[in-house]
Design a protein around this nucleic acid. Structure first.
Length: 570
RNA sequence: CGGGGAGUAGCGCAGCCUGGUAGCGCACCUGCUUUGGGAGCAGGGGGCCGCUGGUUCAAAUCCAGUCUCCCCGACCA
């Protein structure tokens, strides 16, 4: 491609509304432009990279035996009502109506549509398993779109769905998809890790996320060096404190804590360590109120509560008035003793004895509270956030924390959708059974910023080989009566004929502009054709990393030079 | 939805406090000169100052309302 015929509007200045490095670079390098919040246009080079990512994903999906289809973006509301997710997704969905006022949504995902398709066509165990996939735009009216196409409201996703007659068959396919994903992310050159993940709105029994490691990423994960444990922090387990001290149970005692709200204040006043205080929070869930208890130094991980309860959501009760109605006290003084709502406590505080809690009476706490004696029916669950210093639940080694970008997720859905949408097949005995299902997503458009986030420097993007828009760029410099021009164009034409996809910067720009643009847009190899080199009988070659080399051209056929360049481009 | 910030040329910004001809840099167009890491000179085009209403002889500027965008949090590929 000749740059003089291309459209590459690079920016010298960084647009003010970009924060994340990959977002800035995508704008500066002329890959994308914003249309409105969370909605972007892809310019030629951005689109080209997107297509390259798409190709890698498509190849690996096909290799794994999945069949490509295309499902509609416009989806009737009825199907979503049937699965119950019209309400669950709620304001996340872009909704619209046709001229007859019939309701539709722009698909945020395609479980309903695909189950509907398959339930009409697939009735025999003989046709199972089946894996279908598509690469299509998805729409989610995100609360807060951010960081360009990293979290946008329109985004390109590969989504696959599998149908089975048994858990074993699902396990097989799930494993195959895991491997396909590993191949995809390896080929794209990402530094990634797979972690256990919450299932969220998709539902299902087991899920893993594929995370690209990046300090500016929005997701926190933990990994273990000693064993293979890794998890999203939202559901991460930790090594539970052993029941070390066997204290005598002391008598429960009401103590004054006037006007004290925080754990620190109470601890100071009562002269006990903060670890001996148990914090109480009241949550409103789908099934009513619950109390959640964690240690004085810990925080609640709401996702864990939601998961355990099988609830759709859990919101902390945060109005003074409500909390007084429920507990009889203000926030600073609430506690589990005497509450007539279910109580869930973090596993880590099970071993505690003679601890302190709020008394449900303003200005008072209870000291020397103990589990069986003072609190019946407490359920101990993994409830608190994992913290730096926590140890691996499997092997006990210290857990590592990383920030990351989620680029894919795979789910074992079980029969959630086949149950609600009556997707059934006949088994060998002729009984009707719901399909066992899995679903598998890759955020194609998000991979773009993920790759950039892992591969850039102060000059710009550094594309990995499998996604770079062009494998090399010929930069022609100079005022030497067209000699450099001619050689540059010759090299470009010959290389193109050999099948190399390269860029020729033949613009009437100063050398500095050409060099800087080449680095900004991240082309791995620059071939510099200019009078300085020609005088020595060479063209220069420089990698994006700055390694330089020279190729003799003096007295050689252009074919030979092209051959050598081809080897460098690889 | 809670908290913070911003809307003036394609991009980055000044002007607003103290009302009176709408500015600067980059980008863009023309010409000449230049050409190894974001060239120089000369000339030129481009604006419902987010929108609506109010105050005033007069509003980018003061007042009220409203919309949009960005950042932090809750949600997510």
């Amino acid at each position: 491609m000749k740059l003089s015929n291309y459209y590459l509007p690079t920016l010298k200045e960084t647009p003010a509304d970009a924060e994340m490095e990959s977002h800035k670079l995508m704008l500066k390098a002329g890959l994308i432009r914003k249309v409105t919040a969370g909605v972007y246009s892809y310019l030629p080079m951005g689109f080209k990279v997107l297509k390259k990512i798409e190709r890698v994903v498509r190849e690996e999906m096909n290799r794994a035996g999945a069949l490509e289809i295309k499902l509609p973006i416009i989806q009737p509301a009825d199907l979503w009502e049937e699965s119950g997710r019209w309400a669950d997704f709620g304001p996340e969905m872009f909704k619209l109506a046709d001229r007859k006022e019939r309701k539709f949504a722009l698909g945020p995902t395609h479980e309903e549509i695909i189950t509907d398709l398959v339930r009409d066509e697939l009735h025999s165990y003989k046709d199972l398993p089946l894996v279908l996939y598509q690469i299509n735009d998805k729409y989610r009216d995100e609360i807060r779109p951010r960081h360009g196409v990293m979290r946008s409201r329109e985004f390109l996703m590969k989504d696959a769905y599998s149908f089975h007659d048994s858990q074993e068959s699902l396990d097989d396919t799930y494993e195959g998809m895991y491997q396909a994903y590993a191949n995809v992310f390896d080929r794209l050159g990402l530094d990634w890790v797979a972690v256990e993940a919450p299932t969220g709105l998709m539902g299902g029994s087991y899920s893993q996320e594929f995370m690209a490691l990046a300090d500016e990423g929005g997701e926190e994960i933990v990994t273990c060096d000693q064993c293979n444990y890794s998890s999203n922090t939202e559901i991460a387990k930790y090594q539970v404190a052993s029941d070390g001290k066997r204290e005598e149970l002391k008598d429960i005692k009401e103590v004054e804590t006037p006007g004290m709200e925080s754990v620190e204040e109470v601890a100071n006043h009562l002269e006990v360590p903060t670890q001996e205080i148990v914090k109480t929070f009241i949550y409103r869930t789908d099934d009513g109120l619950v109390a959640a208890l964690v240690g004085g130094d810990d925080s609640i991980e709401e996702m864990k509560l939601i998961n355990h309860l099988g609830a759709k959501k859990a919101e902390m009760v945060s109005s003074e008035e409500e909390i007084r109605q429920i507990t009889g006290a203000n926030f600073g003084s609430i506690g589990p003793v005497g509450l007539d709502i279910p109580v869930y406590a973090d596993l880590d505080i099970k071993s505690m004895a003679n601890f302190t809690v709020g008394a449900n009476k303003n200005g008072y706490h209870l000291k020397n509270v103990n589990w069986e004696r003072d609190l019946n029916d407490v359920q101990f669950i993994n409830l608190r956030q994992v913290e730096k210093g926590d140890h691996c639940p499997k092997c006990g080694a210290k857990l590592n924390f990383h920030r990351s970008i989620e680029v894919g997720q795979i789910f074992q859905l079980g029969t959630k959708y086949s149950d609600s949408l009556n997707g059934e097949y006949h088994d060998e005995e002729g009984n009707l059974k719901p399909y066992v299902m899995g679903c598998y997503g890759i955020g194609i458009s998000r991979i773009l910023p993920a790759v950039i986030q892992q591969n850039y420097d102060e000059n710009g993007i550094k594309w990995t080989d499998s996604v770079t828009p062009f494998s090399a760029e010929i930069i022609v410099i100079g005022s030497d009566e067209g000699k450099s021009d001619k050689l540059g164009i010759d090299l470009y034409q010959k290389l193109s004929e050999e099948g190399y996809d390269i860029l020729l910067d033949d613009r009437d720009e100063s050398p500095g502009v050409k060099f800087n643009d080449a680095d900004l847009i991240g082309i791995p190899l620059k071939v510099i054709v200019g009078p300085r080199g020609l005088k020595e009988g060479v063209v220069e070659v420089e990698t994006r990393e700055g390694k330089t080399d020279e190729l003799e051209i003096e007295g050689k056929e252009i074919k030979e030079t092209v051959g050598q360049l081809g080897e460098k481009i690889g």
